[in-house]
Design a protein around this nucleic acid. Structure first.
Length: 723
DNA sequence: GCATCCCATGTACCT
DNA sequence: ACAGGTACATGGGATGCG
């Protein structure tokens, strides 16, 4: 067993050796504070030395000895060494740089300011990271990974990483779930405590009391993880309210509330529901950032952290964050910058179609073809990006495949699912982030090279399918839709296997459709459209993309209608049966729903449209309905924040005054509202046309037939076929 | 003065 | 602090027509 010894004081204290998981870590003063959950469920707080260091590149390397003397003279600098380093990934040769060691984390800002002002330096490196990142990077210590540690006198003496890469279960962190009522930053009326999704206790009786009781509850239960609707923001809210009553509360494990949730992990409700503790664990392991911080970070930030860690391991210097700019002419963009490959679908109704999808195609290209920022121009060695992607890729594959062998919905299945989903979220971004302007190592060439290979692979894939006797109906980026009339599920699986073997990347049968419809452009029905289709799988479930039903801005009534319509239509064993029997039933259903909308009998709550307000009301140039709604709210003192959903119904679209066209649901009473029947009927028929359009359904014709009673619904269809 | 077309703007979705 | 590609609705000005 190897220990990474620290240079600490060697007092005659008893050394302890324990196994556990790093739950939280942060820098306080000149120490790293480490909270470890141990195997027996107990918790320990250890400290460790932390002295920050960074690099500075002299503007003029000739007078380097003189500069060293100058820097050493700074009262906060403990040591300076001259080292030879690559100053960028593209750099052709090493340069002499100063490695500067500081006396205290707090000194960094001051020292850098002084050095900057001196004008003697061209650039600084390894400064644009959190201290805790640098500490964990130096220790090669991914939080939440199983470790054996040695300590004495509450000081860390050594760590040894244990291999828990095959472990499914998350560390035994204790969770507390709560919510604050009402939501928002006003006075607290109640705090609800939950077991799973069920409330089991409500704290009530005056804000001050509620807060104090909650504080006590935390102290008594000593949870490791705090789950609430807004995670850390809720903790801040609690603190603000407590201050109002001059009450001291302690949500974290430190008396000094430095990080408010020191030693505990605040998680957002929706994150917890989707990814669980496993998700936080995967993020922390990937990024080497404590889960308290990284659970909330956007993926790009996690990738940046991992990239910096990998760079440091290779002895590379970390440049500051900044935006890179690459200018190119419009023609260059036109010629070079292409995204994924798309084969326009063959519009219409198809039977027995297979959708074959590549498994993490982009990360696989990065890892297997070793595409990276520094290798893209001249291929050499293992690239940085490969190192970033490979472990996550293997981990994801492991959990995804393990999941399939487990009984669905058991604990282990859920953990595998959460881990693989969390890793997928990161992996998808590795490719996108490679060309992101904010990526300190990024460049467009890398991004485009990955893209180019992906396109090449997809075209090869299509060709193999054709050679094997299949028809390619549609293809987009990393998936292809193929069909052969007599093909069985096994035939499709064989094809997927054959392609995987030849291309060298994993491809799998993702969906086997009984029926699938590819749509035409609504704005120009002569042209077929990508990314909009729907169908029924062999197992009987519906599967659809891009259509109204997928959109959050579609009113629930329309969604329910469209889904039911699809069900009715596809309740058959063959296309013949669909046409002969189900089509008439579907039309009858359209008529029924149409009459209901037109009669005004639909509950307005089912007609609510919700659209996101992406910026401040003043910044809009177009007076769109949801902007009008935002203005309505502003007028009444409710300021809708950018990013919030505007929920409204359409009262009368034709109204000249835009404020009377729509109404925010905030102003609608229980009694109800009279909605714009014409408009909602129109939306209904558009949703119907999406589903029934292939059979010749046309909303205008439907409407005119509806005016004439009695009507024979089939005429709506027949009319088209004969015309 | 009114209907119609076109385009910029904006949201949401797919991979 | 993920990219690029795609679809579609909406408002409002430009355009055409009488």
């Amino acid at each position: 067993m190897r220990y990474y010894q620290d240079l600490g004081s060697c007092r005659a204290a008893e050394k302890m050796r324990v196994k556990g998981w790093l739950l939280d870590a942060y820098i306080a003063g000149d120490k790293a504070i480490l909270w470890l959950k141990l195997e027996d469920g107990s918790l320990i707080r250890l400290t460790d030395q932390y002295r920050p260091d960074f690099y500075a590149e002299p503007a003029d390397s000739d007078s380097i000895e003189e500069i060293v003397g100058l820097v050493l003279n700074h009262p906060n600098v403990e040591d300076v060494r001259v080292e030879e380093k690559f100053t960028s990934l593209e750099a052709s040769g090493k340069k002499k740089v100063l490695h500067i060691y500081l006396d205290h984390p707090k000194s960094q800002r001051r020292v850098i300011k002084t050095l900057e002002d001196s004008g003697l330096f061209r650039a600084f490196f390894n400064i644009d990271l959190l201290h805790i990142q640098r500490y964990l990077f130096h220790k090669n210590w991914p939080p939440t990974q199983r470790v054996e540690i040695e300590y004495a006198d509450s000081e860390l003496r050594g760590i040894n990483l244990l291999d828990d890469s095959r472990e499914i279960e998350p560390p035994p962190f204790k969770t507390l779930i709560y919510s604050i009522e009402p939501p928002g930053d006003g006075e607290i009326q109640e705090i609800t405590l939950y077991r799973g999704t069920r409330p089991y206790h409500r704290l009530r009786g005056g804000e001050k009391n509620i807060i104090m009781n909650f504080n006590q509850h935390i102290a008594a239960n000593d949870p490791d993880i705090l789950v609430s609707p807004h995670g850390y923001d809720d903790v801040k809210h609690l603190h603000r309210r407590a201050e109002k009553h001059e009450v001291h509360i302690q949500i974290g494990r430190e008396k000094a509330s430095k990080p408010l949730t020191a030693g505990r992990i605040p998680l957002r409700w929706d994150f917890y529901l989707e990814y669980g503790i496993c998700g936080a664990v995967e993020r922390a392991r990937f990024s080497l950032v404590p889960p308290r911080l990284c659970a909330d970070w956007p993926a790009g930030k996690l990738i940046d952290s991992r990239q910096c860690y990998e760079a440091m391991k290779r002895g590379l210097l970390i440049p500051g964050r900044g935006f890179y700019i690459e200018s190119r002419t419009a023609l260059e963009v036109l010629l070079r910058d292409r995204g994924g490959f798309i084969l326009a679908p063959e519009a219409g109704l198809h039977e027995n179609v297979a959708e074959l999808d590549y498994e993490s195609l982009y990360p696989n290209i990065i890892a297997k073809e070793d595409i990276s920022y520094e290798t893209v121009k001249s291929r050499c060695g293992d690239g940085l990006l490969k190192a970033v992607a490979l472990e996550a890729l293997n981990r994801r594959l492991y959990f995804k495949h393990l999941k399939r062998r487990l009984p669905k919905e058991c604990k282990e299945w859920l953990w595998c699912d959460q881990r693989s989903k969390a890793l997928k979220g990161i992996l998808v971004c590795v490719y996108g982030y490679s060309g992101c302007f904010a990526n300190r190592f990024g460049n467009i060439a890398t991004f485009e090279e990955i893209n180019r290979i992906a396109r090449e692979k997809l075209v090869e894939t299509m060709n193999i399918a054709l050679e094997e006797g299949f028809q390619v109906v549609y293809a987009d980026t990393d998936s292809i839709f193929v069909k052969r009339e007599d093909a069985s599920r096994e035939d499709y699986e064989r094809l997927a296997y054959e392609i995987s073997r030849k291309i060298g990347f994993p491809l799998a049968l993702d969906h086997h459709y009984k029926f699938v419809v590819f749509l035409k452009r609504r704005t120009d029905p002569r042209i077929e459209v990508a990314k909009r289709y729907f169908g029924k799988l062999q197992d009987g479930s519906l599967h659809y993309r891009g259509i109204e039903l997928r959109r959050q801005d579609t009113p629930p009534f329309i969604k329910d209608f469209q889904e039911k319509l699809m069900r009715i239509l596809f309740d058959a064993d063959s296309i013949e049966e669909v046409r002969r029997r189900q089509l008439a039933k579907a039309l009858a259903y359209v008529e029924e729903a149409y009459r209901r909308v037109k009669s005004g009998r639909v509950d307005w709550r089912k007609l609510v449209i919700s659209k996101r307000l992406n910026k401040g009301v003043r910044e809009y140039r177009c007076n769109l309905p949801h902007v009008t709604v935002a203005k309505q709210l502003s007028l009444r003192g409710l300021k809708p924040a950018p990013g919030s959903l505007m929920e409204y119904i359409i009262l009368n679209e034709a109204e000249a005054n835009p404020y009377r066209r729509v109404a925010s649901i905030a102003f609608l009473k229980e009694g109800g509202a009279s909605y714009d029947r014409e408009k909602y009927a129109e939306l209904l028929l558009e949703a119907a046309e999406t589903i029934l359009g292939v059979f010749g359904f046309n909303k205008e014709r439907f409407k005119s037939k509806m005016e004439l009673k009695p009507l024979n619904l089939m005429e709506v269809i027949k009319g088209t076929l004969s015309s």
